[in-house]
Computed example of a mutant assay.
Amino acid sequence: MEFLKRTPLFNAYQKYGGKIINFTGWALPVQFEGIIKEHEAVRNAAGLFDVSHMGEIEIKGEDAFSFLQNLITNDVSVLKDNEILYTLMCFNDGGVADDLLVYKFSDKHYLLVVNASNVDKDYLWVCSNKDNFNVEINNISHKIAQLALQGPTSEKILQKLTPFKLSDIKFFRFNKNVMIDGVKCLVSRTGYTGEDGFEIYTGTENSERLWNKILETGKEDGIKPAGLGCRDTLRFEAALPLYGNELSEDITPLEAGLGYFVKLNKASFIGKNALVMQNKDGVKRRIVGFEMIGRGIPRHGYSIIKNDEEIGFVTTGYFSPTLKKSIGHAILDTKYTKLGTEIEVIIRKKRVRAKIIKKKFYNKNHKK
């Protein structure tokens, strides 16, 4: 663990019983009290996550808008100042470089929040496509700490620490001047759990103080520190994709069912030609949801069989803490993706029955 990267909150983990693992080169807590307890805390009250390993790339300059419009699949023109856009960034062949959030400060200033495992790769990709655009590109990840406060009591807890009226921050909006316990923060109403909540960005020097203060303040409202384990089960139940699972260099946004975030009517963007062609021809495989009929828990990478033929593989699978059953996402040949279709998952060299269901297992509870 000594050679792994650490967030500014690393020293705080031990106080709360964090079990540390290697997550893509970072020393991060997979759990504190336990994955199920933390999962249920976020669904019913609140959980606080350290997500300071996420990447932040700042885009500034005269051509910031047109540069981003060419770089990503979604339409930057719909954004007003202080609004956020979910989007994908593709390679020329339509494969996904990453999925990310775009924060708009102005037409000349944006912040990209990218996945931790892709920060260096993304930064190189963004820079390599600068061409003749008049922009300045800076990887500021090392300067930023990020906390995610998620769950139905999140607003109640955070409001105790700020004079700012948090209900004014609507879903996928942000304010960069929120004082939390005397610390200036950028606060957005976003998250990766399927619940209402906030993501809080501040300087690394403030992170441990805020972490401790939020947990202290939220005690009577059921808050728990939460780790990567429940972060994954929560996002999965809400059908939120994870890069490396439901998205990758080999899985396009259209195959992942994210066509809504791909604006093929835009003049141009990297990967457009390949995605236009795939849309025209029809995808040959796509991400679906399934539930186990037989006993067993599906895991990432497990093969899926139909009529003795391998038709795809599991992208994510768990025993769902909320639904109390084993469920999964898989990428399958489109011939076998109709709701109700029976399939078999290879679990420990045995075929176990399952059936296709809607991939959104849990309805999100966020404020619009």
Score class of each variant (00 low, 15 high):
207 S>R: 03
299 R>G: 03
237 E>C: 11
13 Y>L: 15
241 P>I: 04
312 G>N: 03
265 N>P: 02
350 K>L: 10
37 K>W: 06
102 V>K: 08
172 F>S: 05
94 G>A: 01
208 E>K: 15
222 G>D: 10
5 K>F: 02
207 S>F: 04
151 G>W: 09
249 E>C: 01
326 S>F: 02
250 D>E: 12
105 F>C: 01
243 Y>I: 14
11 N>Q: 13
225 P>V: 15
67 F>T: 09
246 E>Y: 09
2 E>F: 03
115 N>A: 10
156 K>N: 09
325 K>S: 03
63 D>T: 06
28 L>T: 10
53 H>C: 08
223 I>V: 13
139 N>Y: 04
233 T>N: 08
91 F>Q: 06
8 P>Y: 01
300 H>D: 06
73 T>A: 15
161 L>G: 03
38 E>P: 10
165 K>F: 04
260 Y>M: 05
261 F>V: 01
324 K>V: 03
193 T>H: 11
218 G>A: 13
326 S>D: 12
301 G>R: 08
37 K>G: 11
196 D>F: 11
298 P>G: 08
119 V>N: 08
285 R>H: 05
79 L>D: 02
330 A>F: 02
271 G>E: 07
102 V>F: 07
23 F>P: 00
9 L>N: 15
115 N>D: 10
152 P>W: 06
82 N>C: 03
70 N>T: 10
156 K>T: 10
8 P>N: 02
17 G>P: 13
142 H>L: 11
130 K>H: 09
216 E>H: 13
331 I>M: 00
15 K>P: 01
155 E>A: 05
34 G>N: 11
33 E>V: 14
40 E>P: 01
364 K>Q: 06
158 L>H: 04
58 E>T: 02
97 A>D: 04
121 K>E: 09
180 I>V: 14
97 A>T: 02
20 I>W: 13
364 K>T: 07
357 I>T: 14
102 V>Q: 10
234 L>S: 13
28 L>M: 15
292 M>V: 12
63 D>N: 12
136 E>Q: 11
364 K>N: 05
210 L>Y: 08
153 T>H: 10
89 M>Y: 00
63 D>G: 06
247 L>H: 01
154 S>W: 06
6 R>W: 00
213 K>Q: 15
88 L>W: 05
190 T>I: 15
141 S>C: 04
133 F>C: 08
361 F>M: 04
90 C>K: 06
167 S>K: 14
5 K>Q: 13
204 T>D: 00
137 I>N: 10
295 R>L: 05
187 V>N: 11
31 Q>W: 02
81 D>T: 06
74 N>C: 04
14 Q>S: 15
238 A>D: 09
180 I>P: 07
53 H>M: 12
18 G>F: 11
352 V>P: 09
196 D>W: 09
8 P>G: 02
